[in-house]
Design a protein around this nucleic acid. Structure first.
Lengths: 221, 221
DNA sequence: GGAGTAAGTGTAAAATTAACACCAACGCCG
DNA sequence: CGGCGTTGGTGTTAATTTTACACTTACTCC
């Protein structure tokens, strides 16, 4: 069990993250254009090597910060991909995460530090992806949809206070189907996780009560 | 992104597996007594290094075969643990799996190839575990219980054909609470995944219809 | 002040889940 | 061979949860 007992090369370990956000009423993912071979010019999930002294989560957060400019994110480990042939350059095991970022917490993508071009893509309009990244993305989407039903992660995609209608829109966009307004409100409110505030939304129409997620567990870094 | 581009040491990568079985009407896990430091003499989850040319799943299956003598198993990736300090000897990232083995598919544990002593422990009577293995085990148990509710994995713990009562017992043992017999049967049968056979159970009492899991997806190796 | 649009609200039917008790079929033993 | 002990097998009702569905309110802009 000791790394020093046996003398063989270890596999490389990377982390990758599917970063979802909602922009322009669409579910979008952050992708990076690869500047080097293999798959030069293809789009790929942001990610990179895990340093020896940082945890997996720290590695993801660092990469997200550098490559995507994402500041406050919900982060969850997705799956570890380790097929020997998944990277043509050699053995690379990747621990995939999925992340949710509220649009308000995004710096502009083009501000990425390295030369790589980063861009948001709508899920309905995805380019071909490098490596097994399409498979990873599909898995992430499935997980996101599943967790929406029994958890509170949707709140990571919204500002601190929001009208119920906006929350419903998030659900509808992610699940890609319309929801009944009254049933949605009944159910969400019955969970007891939302707190109405005194604030009202502005804008052209009837002002909406803004709600707050109690004990917001969104991780910031 | 290339393993050869940067020159630093990689973390070591291991796989570990929580192997569950049901023996003596109890949920049990396979543990291995460590023969070397650190944690020499402690009990640990079976596992080992991933070879450069084998997939993560293949690595787990190999280890299970060698250390636990498990032949036909349900195998599912659980979580990847990568805290820098989780192993005192250096950076070791472990991909944890959980496995289910039907008692009938078990060779005796003492037949393990290396000198390490392997043994089954009831979940109600666990020794202290090495490393962060207790945390891994707790996570595996939670996952097993959760999946029992919405999946068919319980069948991996049973022989090919079995009476409904035995299936119910498996549920009760894992969930650690009694279930209503009629409701259980109604629900299980309404899923349409079981097929009654012509076989009947023998034994001292009224013979039971044996059921078969349609499209048994248990993985064998 | 009227048009347009998003906010907000309740009820009835359908489906699912939960609670609950007795008879049947076998082996064993006396 | 008949009764005892034990496990197999079955239905109904009440409670809860989920679904379907339509109108009034409050604001801005013109």
């Amino acid at each position: 069990m000791s790394p020093t007992e046996e003398s063989y090369t270890y596999p490389a370990v990377t982390v990758d993250a599917i970063v979802f956000t909602i922009r322009q009423e669409q579910l979008q993912v952050a992708l990076i254009k690869r500047g080097i071979e293999p798959f030069k010019g293809s789009w790929a999930i942001p990610g990179g090597f895990v340093r020896l002294d940082e945890s997996l989560e720290d590695a993801v957060k660092r990469e997200l910060n550098e490559e995507v400019g994402a500041d406050g994110v919900y982060l969850e480990q997705l799956y570890t991909f380790g097929e020997p042939e998944r990277d043509p350059r050699g053995r690379v095991i990747t621990v995939a995460y999925f992340a949710l970022v509220a649009a308000e917490n995004l710096r502009e993508l083009t501000a990425a530090t390295d030369a790589a071009e980063a861009q948001w893509f709508s899920l309905h309009d995805l380019p071909p992806l490098a490596f097994d990244h399409r498979q990873i993305l599909d898995l992430a989407l499935g997980r996101l949809r599943a967790k929406l039903e029994y958890s509170t992660i949707a709140y990571a995609l919204l500002p601190r206070a929001f009208p119920l209608t906006q929350l419903q829109k998030v659900y509808e966009i992610i699940l890609d189907r319309p929801l009944d307004k009254r049933n949605f409100r009944k159910k969400i409110l019955s969970l007891g996780l939302l707190e109405p505030t005194d604030e009202r939304s502005g804008g052209a129409h009837r002002p909406a009560t803004l709600y707050l997620f109690k004990n917001s567990q969104v991780t910031f870094f």
